[in-house]
Amino acid sequence: MSNEEAEIKEKTRVILEGIGSKRENLIPILQKIQEELGYLPPYAMLEVARFLNIPDIDVYSVATFYNQFRLTPPGKHSIRVCMGTACHVKGGYITLAAWQRRLKIGPGETSPDREFDLDIVACVGCCAMAPVSVVDKKVEGKANPTRVDGILLSYQLQKEQEEKEKN
């Protein structure tokens, strides 16, 4: 982990080069870090706080306030569960619960092996297929808990196949 820590700190320092250390630069800095690293690691936030000479909590405060910032690394596969009106009526919450149960993570989190990240989205614009989950940008219609298991199984098989080919 300490290796990763040093790497993140170094990357953050590179990003911070040439940026003024004024407090108003906080959001642009965080956006840039997320653009480069895919998320806001704690070490990066600490580095930013030190750079702007503000308390750590102020950086965390802003990072948790805006939906655009994510605090966990993105997984290899992204899962977006629709919570729009139609999907809600068609049991989107049951689908979300199925994802949570199978992946053992909550919305906005990433599985420890960094294979999947789970999040909630509002309407994705295909209400006729409700309840919808968007898996790696592919829209999965009528995504009930059985379909959730099916999708995860296909990823598992795919992973096993890849490993076999490697050996």
């Binding site: 704690p42 936030m45 600490l46 503000i54 308390p55 750590d56 909590i57 102020d58 950086v59 965390y60 405060s61 948790t64 306030f65 805006y66």
Partner: peptide, 24 residues
């Protein structure tokens, strides 16, 4: 934060989830 300049606690999150918390 303002009076003592410690900055151990602050507001986090938004809306109903808004709370006084610490870093991480």
């Amino acid at each position: 934060q303002e009076k003592l300049g410690i900055g151990a606690i602050g507001f986090t999150r938004r809306g109903f989830k808004r709370m006084v918390s610490t870093f991480q």
